[in-house]
């Protein structure tokens, strides 16, 4: 499959900007590059469906909109259901000859709260029903729009306004859930994890996802300077560190088969990830040594499992590539 080059994406944007500037997302926010890469990597008409959250609020203050594609937001917990209905309408109207033959891509953009937590049921239903839609979770690991509350995606030990560090509190007491695995358990044709630091990897995954014969899912790590307590200038660097510490591995799951899409040459120490973010400042230095050990163990376990899956599915991917070539 020929991959969209940066030039193709730029040209597509020039022709038709999916998300323009003038919105009020923060400097260094990971969301805009995700949305622009996703929309720029899909040819043809698209419909965007958003859940309530930073993206929706910051891009559509009435009477303005930053969206250059048809866009709808209904509520926080139901973006996948809204998309299901729009996709069903597309099928119904096409069948009755009321639309042109051209395929339309339905793309959902929802935060981690709207995906891992309150929107999980609607997402699960949509995946099980097999609607043709691409669901993109921009994952900034907390409810940012309402002031940095913990979510099911917030990592162990992170300081948020509802998992505060105090004389007793040590940040979030629970592990983040493995949403990508939950999605994969729905037997959908395509799911992947991506990060803004590796835009080509993201773009290629979007292309694959958009061509899938059923639902597809992308879980994309999105930096958040106010929420994570990092410098805006460090956004891309931080995303890269997340990948290279194995905190956020880049992989894809095609028809249930796992493949690591970027293997860091060398695993960077977890401290590099933690030390750039104030949400982990209680772990910096000796004070948080125990918690860091626990975090490191979790990452190592997950990575080992992923490597194993990747190895056992290697033949399957070889056969797929031969078939595609």
């Amino acid at each position: 499959m020929a991959m969209a080059s940066l030039k193709t994406i730029a040209l597509r944007e020039e022709e038709h900007q999916g998300l323009s500037g003038g919105h009020s997302l923060c400097a260094g926010c990971g969301i805009p590059p995700i949305v622009r890469t996703v929309l720029g990597s899909i040819p043809g008409p698209k419909v965007a469906i958003s859940a309530t959250g930073c993206l929706e609020v910051a891009t559509t203050r009435y009477p303005f909109t930053a969206w250059g594609v048809p866009w709808i937001h209904v509520a926080f917990e139901n973006a996948a259901a809204v998309a299901s209905g729009a996709e069903a309408a597309f099928r119904a109207l096409s069948r009755r000859g009321k639309l042109s033959e051209e395929p339309v891509t339905f793309v959902v953009f929802a935060g981690d709260g709207g995906t891992y937590d309150i929107g999980l049921q609607a997402l699960s239903g949509a995946l099980e029903r097999g609607h043709r839609l691409l669901y993109v979770c921009y994952n900034n690991e907390a409810y940012m729009n309402t002031g940095i509350q913990r979510s099911g995606a917030t990592p162990y030990a992170a300081n948020t306004t509802t998992s505060p560090v105090g004389s007793l509190g040590k940040g979030k007491a629970e592990r983040r859930k493995d949403m990508t695995a939950i999605v994969v358990a729905h037997h959908i044709p395509y799911a992947a994890q991506a990060a803004t630091s590796h835009w080509q990897d993201l773009s290629r995954k979007v292309e694959r996802a958009a061509q899938a014969s059923g639902p597809s899912f992308l879980n994309v790590l999105a930096t958040c300077p106010p929420g994570w307590g990092h410098e805006a200038k460090d956004s891309v660097r931080l995303a890269r560190i997340a990948v290279e510490t194995h905190y956020w591995p880049l992989f894809e799951v095609v028809e249930g088969h796992y493949r690591i899409t970027h293997r860091p040459l060398q695993q960077r120490p977890l401290e590099e990830w933690l030390n750039l973010q104030k949400r982990f400042s209680h772990l910096h230095g000796e004070r948080g040594a125990d918690l860091v050990v626990r975090l490191q163990e979790e990452l190592d376990d997950s990575w080992a499992q992923l490597v194993q899956r990747d190895a056992s599915d290697a033949d399957w991917f070889r056969a797929l590539e031969e078939a595609e070539a």
Binding site: V74, S84, A89, R91, R129
Partner: peptide, 25 residues
């Protein structure tokens, strides 16, 4: 000749209905 969407809750039924109605159906 209708596309029935067997959703997983009434919240999703109404949400899908809104998506469908705004998509011209």
């Amino acid at each position: 000749d209708t596309v029935i969407v067997q959703v997983e809750s009434e919240h999703s039924a109404m949400s899908a209905a809104v998506g469908s109605a705004l998509a011209g159906a």
